[in-house]
């Protein structure tokens, strides 16, 4: 049986969600290809006529667009942005992202639950970005979220799995895909999240600030695939104490 990631009514083979912020639109196609990403996030902003490049012209057909609600400071603003994004005619996926703290960029879990409930009822496939709190994750599930996206560390920090133990609780207790979002800075951290049982990893800044954007997207792809395989395989055990020889304990030369 193929190992699929199911979000809403769509199935995905890739478990790498790629962000498209903070790097040249000309690199997006190569990053998607080398990263093997089937989902890419976008933001909605005021248009201007000086800007000749449109990001939609750079995204290969068949890639699912995941517009975020960045800029929203409360549920009402997130709902407004989500509806406008859907009116673009590129599908009904939305990453709910609500924050009003410019220093740490931490999500407002309470407003996120409210927005998720409204948007799920309107038929959106809602992927809420959240601070990893078990009770909130349960509320998001009840509200109709298609997945839960806990942060690993503050957005753009590349600090890795600072919330590791709390993400593990969500993975163990919530019957929805847990997609680790924000703060993942290295392929090894993405791999660790997948080994823990995360359903997918979303990364943007780690790739955008790398020396070679498409090559780093490729490194994340490999790391995420390795972590997923390790998780499905079942990890080797850890000894509390002492060692255990890997070689036969008989037939020594003396």
């Amino acid at each position: 049986m193929q190992d699929k990631l199911i979000l809403g009514n769509k199935e995905f083979t890739s478990r790498f969600i790629l962000g498209s912020g903070k790097y040249d639109v000309n690199l997006i196609k190569a990053a998607i290809e080398q990263g093997g990403a089937e989902i890419i996030t976008l933001a909605l902003r005021r248009a201007n006529t000086e800007q000749t490049e449109n990001i939609l012209d750079r995204i290969p057909e068949g890639v699912t667009l995941l517009p975020n609600t960045s800029g929203a400071r409360n549920a009402d603003e997130a709902v407004r942005i989500a509806r406008l994004s859907r009116a673009m005619g590129c599908g009904d996926f939305v990453k709910v992202e609500i924050m009003h703290d410019a220093k740490y960029l931490l999500p407002d879990n309470y407003e996120t639950v409210k927005a998720t409930e409204i948007l799920a009822a309107e038929g959106f496939t809602v992927l809420p970005y959240m601070y990893p709190d078990l009770n909130v994750a349960r509320d998001l599930q009840s509200a109709g979220a298609a997945a839960v996206m806990p942060l690993a560390a503050p957005i753009g920090s590349n600090k890795g799995l600072a919330t590791r133990d709390f993400i593990q609780i969500l993975i163990d207790e919530i019957d929805l895909p847990i997609i680790v979002d924000a703060g993942i800075g290295r392929p090894s951290q993405a791999c660790e999240a997948m080994e823990m049982g995360a359903a997918a990893v979303m990364a943007n800044t780690a790739i955008a600030t790398a020396g070679d954007v498409p090559a780093m997207a490729g490194a994340f792809r490999q790391a995420i695939e390795a972590g997923r395989t390790a998780y499905l395989t079942g990890m080797g055990r850890v000894l509390a104490r002492g060692g255990s020889a890997s070689d036969p304990l008989t037939g020594f030369l003396r």
Binding site: L42, A43, R46, I55, L65, P67
Partner: peptide, 29 residues
């Protein structure tokens, strides 16, 4: 604050007092 679908651009007249947002997708995370 009301979304205007593309099919209605032709018949939507801009009037004094209107506040309009014209938006597009950009790179984001």
């Amino acid at each position: 604050l009301e979304i205007i679908c593309r099919a209605d651009y032709d018949k939507t007249v801009i009037s004094d007092g209107d506040s309009i947002e014209i938006l597009n997708f950009v790179g984001g995370g």
